[in-house]
Amino acid sequence: MAAPDPITRGIALRIFAAGTYSLMTGLLKFASTDHVAAIEMLFYRATCGLPVVMIWVMANGGLRAIRTERPWAHLTRCTLGIISISLTFQSLILLPLADATTIGFTSPIFATILSWLVLREPVGRHRWLAVILGFIGVAIVMRPGATSHAVPLLGVAVALMAALGQASVTITLRQIGGTEHVAAIVFWFFISSIVVAGLFMPFFASWHTPATYLLLAGAGVCGGLMQLALTASLQSAPVSVIAPFDYLQIVGATIFGWLVLGSPPTINTLGGAALIAGSGLYTAWREHRRRRDPHVPPTQSVA
């Protein structure tokens, strides 16, 4: 049987990454019912995911690959990443799983704005239209004026701050990705997450049931596998081809929340998700056209 071509392999890996992400967030949401704090989620995700990452590091250059000439750049990236992922986990605690995942996909919207403000990159009117549509999607998810099934505004604010943090990470990675090995970026982020979360664990951690610890450990392994699949997919296929499959995370979160957590999606969640996903997919399509046709106005990559 012939081996799949690189494009097919890249798509399969991206779908696997979306599935493991959905499972990770679902397990963490389940664990939050036992009053697990976001710091605990960060600690166990990094600790249980590190062995998986180390296997990948040793297979991709070994310890030489994690050496860096830019420790301060890694410090900035890790600081932004820890803040962002902690806010993401907090949003899982405050919001229904599907809503938290959907709002998280506003990260490309913030990346567009930051690329214009920080990197001074040109953003065409088509991309600005996508930004506006994305924020309309967020407004719909918020259920303005709803008297029942209203989404907590604090949760929405935390999820948006998490997306802004992730966009900041994207900008930082674009600045250091040209000189730093991917293994170094991933490894030092996991190490810094363990160190920072470990310092706060005595203040926020509490005892849980054995089942909860199993959920946290499973989420950590899923997080490590997700990281491997994401990286491998980028080595197999162009970003413009595989990035749209990230939106399967919304589908996975919706199904998990409905069937496992007993939280069916509302019409607002589905409508807002459609607009946010459409905004991101349109952006990816415009970027693909720009790369093929120099006459198409340039847009910002969100990869």
Results as ranks from 00 to 15, higher is better:
Thr172Ile: 15
Val302Phe: 10
Gly49Ser: 14
Ala253Gln: 04
Ala274Val: 12
Ala211Glu: 09
Phe256Pro: 00
His181Trp: 02
Lys29Cys: 02
Phe30Arg: 00
Leu275Phe: 14
Leu173His: 04
Gly252Gln: 00
Val36Ile: 10
Ala217Gln: 08
Phe135Met: 12
Gly198Ala: 10
Val196Trp: 09
Arg290Gly: 03
Thr172Ala: 15
Ala59Val: 03
Leu133Met: 12
Phe43Thr: 01
Pro265Gly: 02
Ala253Met: 01
Val36Gln: 03
Leu160Thr: 04
Phe89Ile: 02
Ile176Asn: 06
Ile250Gly: 00
His126Thr: 14
Trp285Glu: 10
Phe190Cys: 06
Leu153Trp: 09
Leu80Ala: 11
Trp207Gly: 14
Gly271Arg: 02
Trp116Gln: 09
Gly262Asp: 10
Thr47Met: 12
Gly61Leu: 13
Ile85Gln: 07
Asn268Gly: 04
Gln166Glu: 14
Phe16Thr: 12
Gly124Ser: 13
Ile267Phe: 13
Ile109Asn: 01
Ala3Cys: 00
Thr209Pro: 03
Ala273Gln: 04
Leu216Phe: 04
Met1Asn: 10
Ile103Val: 14
Ile267Ser: 14
Phe200Asp: 01
Thr299Tyr: 07
Gly124Ala: 08
Gln166Cys: 11
Ala253Pro: 01
Ser91Leu: 13
Leu87Cys: 14
Ala273Ile: 07
Ala273Leu: 08
Ala167Trp: 11
Ala229Lys: 03
Val169Arg: 03
Val239Arg: 05
Ile82Leu: 13
Ile171Tyr: 07
Asp99Gly: 03
Glu40Gln: 08
Cys78Ser: 15
Leu27Gly: 00
Gly81Val: 11
Ser86Asp: 05
Val131Ser: 07
Leu94Glu: 11
His208Met: 08
Gly26Cys: 06
Phe105Gly: 02
Gln90Glu: 15
Ala73Met: 14
Gly257Tyr: 04
Phe200Ala: 07
Thr25Tyr: 07
Leu50Lys: 03
Phe203Val: 08
Val186Lys: 01
Ser263Gln: 13
Leu228Cys: 15
Arg286Met: 10
Ala184Thr: 05
Ala65Val: 15
Ala232Arg: 11
Val239Ala: 15
Leu230Met: 14
Gly26Asp: 06
Leu13Cys: 04
Leu95Glu: 03
Val196Lys: 07
Thr88Phe: 08
Ser168Pro: 02
Thr47Glu: 06
Ala162Lys: 06
Val123Lys: 02
Met161Val: 07
Gly272Asn: 07
Leu173Thr: 15
Thr299Val: 12
Leu173Cys: 09
Ser148Tyr: 05
Gly278Asp: 06
Arg45Thr: 12
Asp293Phe: 14
Ala219Tyr: 02
Arg70Gly: 01
Thr8Tyr: 10
Gly278Tyr: 07
Val196Asn: 01
Thr106Ser: 13
Leu225Ser: 03
Arg290Leu: 05
Val53Phe: 02
Ala274Tyr: 09
Ala12Glu: 03
Phe189Ala: 04
Ala37Gln: 11
Ser84Val: 06
Ala253Thr: 05
Ile109Ser: 00
Thr88His: 08
Arg174Thr: 10
Thr102Lys: 01
Pro202Gly: 06
Ala17Lys: 01
Ala46Val: 06
Gly257Gln: 01
Tyr213Cys: 10
Leu50Met: 14
Ile113His: 03
Leu199Trp: 12
Pro298Leu: 11
Leu28Phe: 11
Thr101Ile: 14
Val151Lys: 05
Pro238Thr: 14
Ala237Asn: 02
Pro210Glu: 08
Leu275Ser: 09
Ile93Gly: 01
Ser236Leu: 13
Ser233Gly: 12
Met24Asp: 04
Thr212Asn: 04
Phe256Gly: 00
Ile136Gly: 06
Ser301Val: 11
